[in-house]
Design a binder for these strands. Sequence first.
RNA 1: GCUCUUGUAGUUCAAUGGAUAGAACAGAACUCUUCUAAGGUUUUGAUGUAGGUUCGAUUCCUACCAAGAGCACCA
Length: 562
Amino acid sequence: MKEKLGKALIKAIEKQGIENPTVNIEHPEDNTFGDFSTNLALVYSKQLNLAPKIIAEKIIEELKKDLLGEVKSIEIAGPGFINFKIKDDFFANQVLDISKNIKDFGKNDLDKGKKIMVEYTDPNPFKIFHIGHLMANTIGESLSRIIEFSGAKVVRACYQGDIGLHVAKTIWAVLKNRQENINIKYLGDMYVFGSNKYEEDEIAKKEIIEVNKKIFEKLDKEINKIYDFGKKISLEYFDEIYKKLDSKFDNFFFESEVADDGIKIVREFLKKGIFEESEGAIVFPGEKYGEHTRVFINSQGLPTYEAKELGLTQKKFKLYPKLSESIVITANEQNAYFKVILASLNVMYPEIAKKMKHLSHGILRPSSGKMSSRKGNIVSADDLIAEFESLVEEKLKGRELDKKEYEEIKKAVAIAGLKFTILRQSIGGDIIYDPLKAVSFEGDSGPYLQYAVVRANAILIKSQEVEISKNVKILPETVSILEKLILRFPEVVERSRKEYSTHYIVTYLIELSSAFNSYYANNQIINSEDSLSPYRVMITKVFAEIMKNGLWILGIKVPEKM
RNA sequence: GCUCUUGUAGUUCAAUGGAUAGAACAGAACUCUUCUAAGGUUUUGAUGUAGGUUCGAUUCCUACCAAGAGCACCA
């Protein structure tokens, strides 16, 4: 429909003497204006030296010559907008068509045949898996799914820092505070301990640097043993969290695997004059490229995160030479650092640099109180999930559910609340949530979306029992906003893909659910006396399927009952 | 100090340069003898300040104010 209108509008404006016009068609925010609108007359009023309203009239005259059958009315409004109203039966028929092939509804071909890598989460063994990792995971998983909906094969990658100073801090602390049972909690505590000592204590700092060197050399048996065990239990622990979050990686990269390659790249380009030596370290003089200088290899000859990132990037493209895009998601405190990396890549490997896309997220914090990573009181992903689960438990009190259902609902609803909180706003900013209302299950929330689908599903089950015909013979004379919103799903997915944004999906699903809830309140869907009942059941089915797909994109599961 | 990001109802978020700036929560008033009321209906309330560009600015530019992050051997 949109394409048809677009073509007709282009034809009409070209007749006014505009070459290669760009036509903007949107849905007016206020739907009483119509179903589509264009600002065409406003845009070209200057070029044509005519008042927008006059141009609009001329356009409408042209349009009327081959008036589209589906259009109910065309009007000029405001400063010169052209508003289109579409006939109701068009919407009803479209929804009926969609219902016949609902499975793929919402998919598009923007990335057809492409292979795209998304790197996200990136937790570090020997350190806590904290809220930041949870955020990156939620965002990365959802973006991956949006890109899959656009036809690409997505390679999900996770880059883990299994080597570097943070590991040395933990292992040094373990050596100082030996304990029989080494578990995740203990390792987390040891990192905090080592990290603090590194800041405060000069002697400790020297020892930690020494340990760091030994980890690289792999000659100290004692250290190797702690290292291997610590890495193993860290990775097992991460796997458990990924299961909870319903995300799976195709490829795990480790810093230890890319360190040597990183050094090679830096040394190679040091000879070519891209890098420079400075105070015993090898640095990239970013000022030449509008950035700042950063150390790639430190004065001990060890690669920093920067050099390793180069090695990682090279490895990604060696493994998958056909990648058309490589997306990396990190916290936004790394923005400046990433700009320097990209600037250096742009000099060394411009073809690769073009394909890199860096996205960053802010921090997730409660509206009251402030967290300091220095002091180590970072909230772990596990604790946060547990907090959400206990809030759900409160809500579930007094409901009659068997134990299995109870557990399923608790998990699904807690994760939904959490992921919704993260995905509902545009990526990049901090997310502030009220811990008391963490997921208030009223209003805009993950559980609200789930609840709408659960209710729709209950109706669909009942419709089979009552045997409402699946043959839709009669369409309603007037349609509601529900039908109109249903048709917009594909364009919402496209926009999300183009802008790397998850929140358009969230906003859309909220609007759609709200429209359905309203429909549900105003229409009795199952009524064997009513000839419109088959249509209403059909639309309920379409709604439920879109919600299922939309929530899948967000990484949210729908429980059977709530 | 320098660089970047962000300032929208009491609160948390929306708004491809467009129309009367949308929601949700909180506040006020309704609504279950009807398919799950974690629902629905109605209602009060906002663009940090000062300029500029534009037919039109929450959006673009400049300055100021405020908050956050980053500024060489951490990741």
